[in-house]
């Protein structure tokens, strides 16, 4: 059924063969980068995870590489990088602000977790039977 009350803004999303080739090239480039990063992560984890001297280095390397991969997925695969700037910030800004706040509050207030609710902690510890052979 044809509806004339719906605006169609998607009709000019077509592209020709020439542009298609460029887009595909970009997609394969990103695939290569993401596979290389994942293999690098696993190799790094296998090699260094036993050594406590590298623990902090590993943690921040993994987190930054993850953010790199996430950036590629959102900006290239989900085409947010090709959208208008106002849409891009409508999506990203609330997320960055609120999640930044959540992480901040967990990092700064978490030190009280053990002191304020000791009874809850005891409950959890009594319930745990595990860790027997670790």
């Amino acid at each position: 059924m044809e509806r004339d009350d719906v605006y169609e803004y998607s009709l000019d999303t077509h592209h020709d063969e020439e542009t298609g080739k460029k887009v595909r090239k970009k997609i394969y480039q990103v695939l290569f980068i993401m596979s290389a990063v994942t293999i690098f992560e696993v190799a790094l984890g296998l090699k260094l995870s036993g050594d406590p001297a590298y623990a902090t280095f590993l943690k921040y390397t993994f987190i930054s590489l993850t953010l790199l991969k996430a950036g590629y997925i959102v900006m290239v695969f989900m085409h947010l990088g090709d959208e208008r700037k106002n849409l891009r910030w409508t999506i990203l800004a609330p997320y960055l602000v609120l999640i930044g706040y959540l992480i901040y509050i967990c990092l700064t207030e978490a030190i009280y977790a053990g002191t304020i609710r000791p009874s809850i902690e005891m409950l959890f510890n009594a319930g745990s039977g595990g860790g027997g052979h670790h």
Partner: peptide
């Protein structure tokens, strides 16, 4: 492991 116990560590 299940929701109550976990042989590997904390439930």
């Amino acid at each position: 492991a299940n929701l109550k116990v976990n042989e590997y560590g904390h439930p």
